[in-house]
Amino acid sequence: MRLLWRVFWLNALVAMVATILLMIGPWTVSAPIRFTEAVILVAGMGSLLAANAVLLRWGLAPLDRLTQVMTTIDLLRPGQRLEATGSAEMTALISTFNQMLDRLEVERGTSSARALSAQEDERRRIAQELHDEIGQRLTAVLLDLKRLTDQAPEPMRADMRQVQEITRGSLDEVRTIVHRLRPGVLEDLGLLSALTALTNQFDTHTGLKVRRELGADLPELSTQSELVIYRIAQESLTNAARHAGATAADLELVPGHGGVTLHVRDNGTGITGLREGAGIRGMRERALLIGAQLTITSRPGQGTRVSLHVPVPTERGIP
């Protein structure tokens, strides 16, 4: 039973007992009790209960709001706070809860920054090992196969060439994985070139045709912000190609509103489930890391739109 009704029924019990005692006792009413006196007592008890219920509902309303926020709060959507209203005890409780949210958001941002930094370092390490070990060995195998094919008898050359093509395809796949893990173009040539290479990669290796529009006069962004924009664009296009069954997508990166805004739209099936997957939550964590605002809108059968606004001024001082 909710606290409101527990307090209400306790007060109601007290009021009913008091009324019964007045009705059967000779102290304030006639004995035997008159009909008019009983009506007055019952009306008084009803008025007392109604007033009691109204006052309790008004006094405990902040607690109901606090309970609702506590059950629906999401630290990946910062800024959700309650107005401290009500009695002194209730105001203190809500203020303490808001302060706890402040601390949790700061700690979540710090832990997310460390986790994402470790994730990027691990991706670089794996990409480097794939490039240096697997890639070089496959290249050596490909060269040996070419030499052996030239020396092999004519009946065996067709089979040797087929093995060459399989090896060459494996080498291309390793290079594609290395590029996804570690966007070297982003580090060497910048965000615009990296997004161009990303869209060309989806055009070449998937059935997703990406139309891009990249602004020329973008404000200067930090390395962390460029990496977040790239990863969110990569995740959005990957979701569109693998999970949404989209055949076309638009990618835009335009300046405005004190920063830059990334838009990724597709014509896929949209998000049908109520629960967000790990990919979307990962995008929210990355956006939270740089103080950006991420908005995802989707309707079943009408595609998905991902918008990321990165405010440039707030990124100063972010490690």
Rank of each mutant, 00 (worst) to 15 (best):
M90N: 07
L218S: 00
G256P: 01
E213W: 00
G190A: 05
T149A: 10
G291N: 07
S222D: 01
D74K: 01
P78D: 07
M45E: 05
A113T: 11
E133D: 15
I134E: 02
A233V: 10
A241Y: 07
G268M: 12
R212K: 13
A246S: 15
Q128N: 11
L253K: 05
D150K: 08
V106D: 02
G215M: 04
A240I: 05
L22S: 07
W5Q: 14
H131F: 03
R2S: 15
D266L: 05
Q201P: 03
Q119V: 02
P311G: 08
R137I: 04
A197M: 11
G184I: 04
Q201I: 02
T71I: 07
Q224W: 02
A50N: 08
S111E: 12
A51Y: 08
E173R: 09
R265Y: 00
A278M: 12
V14F: 03
A51D: 03
V310P: 00
M23K: 01
S95T: 14
E235I: 06
W58H: 12
L101G: 01
I280W: 06
R125A: 15
L192K: 14
N200C: 07
L22P: 00
A194F: 06
V254N: 14
I296T: 08
L253D: 13
A50K: 02
T96Q: 09
A140F: 07
V69E: 11
V141L: 15
D217K: 06
L104V: 04
P255C: 03
L93S: 06
R265H: 08
E105C: 04
A240Q: 05
E226W: 00
L192E: 13
R275L: 14
L76W: 11
F35V: 15
S117V: 03
Q68I: 10
M100H: 10
G135L: 02
N200F: 06
R180W: 06
L214V: 08
R211T: 11
S87N: 00
A246E: 11
T196F: 05
R265A: 09
T28K: 01
A127W: 04
L237D: 02
L142W: 00
A194M: 05
V7R: 13
L274I: 08
T96Y: 05
T149Y: 03
G317M: 02
D150P: 01
V14Y: 00
I94N: 00
M45C: 13
P313Q: 12
D74I: 01
S236N: 09
E122P: 03
F202W: 05
V210R: 00
I166Y: 08
I296F: 09
T297V: 13
F8I: 08
G291T: 04
L10M: 08
R2P: 14
P219N: 03
T19I: 08
I73S: 08
T85D: 10
T36G: 14
E83I: 07
L208R: 06
V310S: 04
F202N: 07
I126T: 14
D266G: 05
L13R: 09
T36I: 14
S112N: 11
T269A: 14
V312D: 00
A43C: 03
M283R: 01
S112Q: 05
P311V: 02
D250N: 04
V163R: 14
K209R: 13
V39E: 12
Q162A: 14
R212A: 15
L221G: 09
M160N: 12
V254Q: 15
L253P: 02
M160R: 01
E154C: 04
D121V: 09
I94Q: 06
R286A: 15
D74Y: 06
I33D: 02
P255N: 04
A84I: 06
